Simulated scan of single mutants.
Amino acid sequence: MTRIRIRMPDLVPAGQAFTIRALITHPMETGLRLDRTGLTVPRRIIHRFVCTLDDIPVIDIAFEPAISADPFVEFDAVAERSGVLQFHWHDESGEVHSASRHLKVI
């Protein structure tokens, strides 16, 4: 089960940097580990994280197989107007895990 947690302020001053923290529960299997029966656990990693504000890119990160399970990202952003922040984690299996938060700029 995938769980997403996002921490960010609900209200930010226009033009001032603020911090966004995002965590997704994901096993990040590299395809190198063996299960109890000795079979290889299939590779399944998140290879990309994208955050947009009203469809305008804020950050786009490419993950490598060596990243740990439950990837956590922290980054600063600046907004000039209120909008919806969209968060997308792209899994190699084709799944896209998403979340969104409303951001109010004063």
Rank of each mutant, 00 (worst) to 15 (best):
L53H: 05
R101N: 05
G38P: 09
R7C: 02
T25N: 10
A66Y: 14
I20A: 03
I67C: 07
T2V: 12
E92A: 10
H26F: 01
R21F: 08
H102L: 12
A79E: 00
E64Y: 12
E29S: 14
H102P: 03
A17L: 08
A77K: 05
A14T: 01
I106L: 13
W89A: 03
L53W: 00
S82N: 10
L34H: 13
E29K: 13
V78S: 04
I6Y: 04
C51Y: 00
V41N: 10
D35I: 13
V78T: 08
H88T: 11
W89G: 03
P57T: 00
R81D: 06
F63K: 09
V73P: 08
V96L: 02
L103T: 00
L85F: 08
T19Y: 00
L53K: 03
V105S: 03
P13D: 15
L103C: 04
I24P: 11
T30K: 15
I67P: 01
L103H: 02
E74D: 10
P65K: 08
G94R: 07
R81N: 09
E64A: 07
A62C: 09
V105G: 03
L34S: 12
R7V: 05
E29I: 09
F72Q: 05
R3E: 13
Q86E: 14
V96E: 11
R43P: 02
H90L: 14
E80C: 02
A66S: 13
H88C: 05
P57K: 11
T30R: 15
E74K: 14
V105C: 04
R43N: 03
A14L: 04
L34I: 06
V50F: 00
I46W: 01
H97G: 06
T30E: 14
A22L: 05
L11K: 04
V41M: 13
I61W: 05
L11V: 14
I24T: 11
G83T: 06
A69Y: 05
V84P: 05
I20G: 04
P13N: 14
P65H: 06
I20L: 08
A17M: 07
D54P: 06
L34M: 13
M28L: 09
F72I: 08
